Computed example of a mutant assay.
Amino acid sequence: MSRSGVAVADESLAAFNELKLGKKFKFVVFSLNDKKTQIIVNETSSDQSYEKFLESLPENDCRYAVYDFDYELPGGEGKRSKIVFYTWSPDTAPVRSKMVYASSKDALRRALNGVASDIQGTDFSEVSYETVLEKISGGGAH
């Protein structure tokens, strides 16, 4: 349970484990249920396109997401994969929504073992592929 009294639904943990262990999904998007009492699965996808992932983030509302981020190491040293946790809280989202998502984040984040990086996004430039790649690869992937 989070400070806001929001619980993480079992389906949310199951979907995360399918992404992490089963490699069934490329990303999972989470939202709060209508009563704002549980963090539920909003969408899952095995689509490899990062653009498809970004399209799943609403322009005017908050979400959480995990994305199995693949990238090349510089100098052809091979590929890496990291599970990235996103807190999507656009400036245009309702204030109440931003507050509930902010106070509920820790419950979900603590439940997801194996996340390598956290990304906070308030607009699409902060969650662009290049921005996230730079953050998770230590800035040396150009």
Rank of each mutant, 00 (worst) to 15 (best):
N60G: 14
I39C: 10
S45W: 06
K79D: 15
R3W: 02
I83G: 11
D118P: 00
S97H: 07
V8T: 03
S46P: 09
K98H: 09
N17S: 12
S2L: 07
D91A: 08
S46E: 15
P58S: 05
S128R: 08
A9F: 10
L54Q: 13
R96N: 13
A14K: 09
P58R: 00
R96F: 09
F27G: 05
S137G: 12
S89A: 15
A102S: 15
A141K: 12
V29R: 02
K135E: 10
V84K: 06
S46M: 05
Q48G: 15
F27R: 00
L73F: 00
S81R: 14
F27T: 02
E59Y: 11
L57W: 06
T37C: 01
S81A: 15
G5C: 12
Y129A: 09
S81K: 13
V115R: 06
N60S: 14
D91S: 03
N17Q: 13
N60R: 01
K52P: 00
S2R: 02
G76Q: 01
P90G: 02
F53E: 03
P90I: 03
K35P: 00
K135S: 07
Q38I: 00
F30G: 02
R109W: 09
G140A: 11
E43Q: 13
T44K: 01
V132W: 02
I39N: 04
F85T: 03
S31I: 07
Y67R: 02
R63N: 08
R110A: 13
L133A: 12
T92N: 04
R63H: 08
E134K: 14
Q48A: 15
K98W: 10
D47G: 05
V115H: 13
S104C: 06
A116Q: 13
G140S: 12
P90L: 01
N42D: 15
N17D: 15
S46H: 14
G121R: 02
M99T: 14
W88E: 04
L21W: 05
D61S: 14
D70F: 08
E59Q: 12
N17I: 00
T122A: 13
S81E: 15
A102R: 05
T37H: 00
S137T: 12
V8F: 04
T87Q: 06
Y64I: 06
E130A: 15
K98T: 09
K23S: 15
S12G: 10
T87Y: 07
P58Y: 04
K52C: 14
T92H: 01
S125F: 04
V8K: 03
S12W: 05
A116Y: 08
V95F: 12
A65V: 09
H142P: 05
G75P: 01
A7W: 10
E18Q: 08
V95E: 07
S4C: 10
L108T: 01
E11L: 09
V29Y: 04
T122V: 13
E77A: 12
D10P: 12
L19T: 02
L108G: 03
E55C: 13
D68S: 11
N60C: 14
G139F: 08
V127W: 00
F85K: 03
E130W: 10
F124A: 08
I39G: 04
K82M: 11
Q48W: 08
P74V: 10
V100Y: 10
S81H: 13
G76T: 01
V28A: 06
E51A: 07
P74R: 02
Q38G: 04
R110S: 14
A7I: 08
N42F: 11
E55P: 05
K82S: 12
I136N: 01
Y101T: 08
K35E: 15
P94A: 11
